[in-house]
């Protein structure tokens, strides 16, 4: 008898990573905070009036870039229900949809900001997206980091270099150290040092910062998050009217049943310039998130198979229009 080649496998020993359907670009048409809501529907109409031409531009740019011209573009809108609660979904959602329609805009997906922190999944219970991302942070090391000590951390903060050493005297009679500047790690000539607060805690309750949740939001839109290999959040269609309570509203709602997929190879956010510091913080966070290797390969493989070349670095897949 010749030798027999045996194969033995164990499911629990293998990693399985689910894939998500992907558009070419996910366009964020706006982000609604309480202050915008309080300013009345006119503020919202004004936002959509500014956004409309940019959406048209994105569609035509991607139409040229995609072989065959069939670009998949999906639009989304984020409502803050995390830092402050205002109005109710049954009042607010129709108002947003109508204001967008006045400028021929269709909102494909509507998301709740609190879902980026935690949401209830009917299948798997509470899903803490923010924790998934927190555990994937890999600190940008200053020169001289050789692994001999754990990374220097200020709990709840993340920066892009080395902080200024403390100038306080070590003892009451000691001499204060002169100030030394913080240094950006990958500086070109001069430093732009950024230090971002990720969360704060009052007692047992942790409040995630706006940039941290916005970083989670970008990763969701890029389809790069997985929990135990599964896609943690999928859009849901609401059929029986809008609920009166935000917690009753699914994390991401599909408003248009014909919409292109929610997640995309790239994202574009059309925002007011007042969000510029937030987005700098978001990029500082995202450039220190290690996305699963397998997920990155999956997305790269998919895009290449349809003739789209993606930027290698995650932060380069994110773009903005500040108007």
């Amino acid at each position: 008898m010749t030798s027999v080649h045996a194969t033995f496998g164990e499911v629990a020993a293998e990693r399985r990573i689910a894939s998500v359907p992907l558009s070419h670009v996910s366009v964020e048409l706006g982000h609604l905070y309480m202050e915008d809501f309080e300013a009345g529907p006119e503020r919202l109409r004004e936002q959509f009036r500014r956004v409309a031409p940019w959406l048209a531009t994105v569609r035509s740019l991607w139409g040229e870039r995609v072989p065959g011209g069939r670009a998949r573009v999906s639009t989304c809108f984020l409502v803050d229900d995390y830092f402050s609660r205002f109005s109710t979904p049954d009042e607010l959602v129709p108002m947003i949809v109508d204001a967008a329609a006045e400028h021929d805009l269709t909102i494909d997906y509507l998301a709740r900001e609190s879902a980026c922190a935690r949401f209830e999944d009917p299948r798997s219970g509470g899903v803490e997206l923010a924790r998934l991302v927190e555990d994937r942070l890999v600190d940008d090391p200053p020169q001289g980091t050789d692994g001999s000590r754990p990374p220097v951390k200020e709990t709840g903060w993340l920066c892009n270099g080395s902080r200024s050493p403390s100038t306080a005297p070590p003892q009451a009679m000691g001499k204060a150290r002169p100030w030394e500047p913080p240094v950006q790690n990958a500086k070109r000539g001069h430093s732009i040092f950024v230090d971002v607060e990720l969360w704060d805690e009052q007692g047992p309750r942790r409040t995630w910062s706006c940039p941290f949740l916005a970083a989670v939001w970008q990763l969701l839109r890029l389809g790069l998050l997985r929990s135990d290999g599964r896609v943690p959040l999928s859009p849901v269609t609401v059929r029986d009217g809008w609920p009166r309570d935000w917690d009753q509203l699914p994390a991401v709602v599909r408003l248009d049943p014909q919409a292109a997929p929610f997640s995309a190879y790239t994202t574009l956010s059309v925002l007011s310039p007042r969000f510029l510091p937030v987005e700098l913080a978001v990029r500082t966070i995202l450039s220190q998130v290690a996305v699963d290797d397998e997920v990155l390969r999956q997305v790269a493989g998919r895009s290449e198979s349809e003739g789209v070349r993606l930027e290698e670095e995650l932060v380069d897949r994110i773009s903005y229009v500040f108007v």
Partner: peptide, 29 residues
């Protein structure tokens, strides 16, 4: 050791369990 990442376990011929992989940044000699 990482939220949302599975521990891989194989049982034959001996129980062998592997944690998820984590990264540490370095910039040194």
């Amino acid at each position: 050791i990482t939220a949302g990442e599975t521990v891989r376990v194989s049982r034959r011929p001996i129980v062998h369990a592997l944690s998820p992989e984590r990264l540490t940044g370095v910039d040194c000699a």
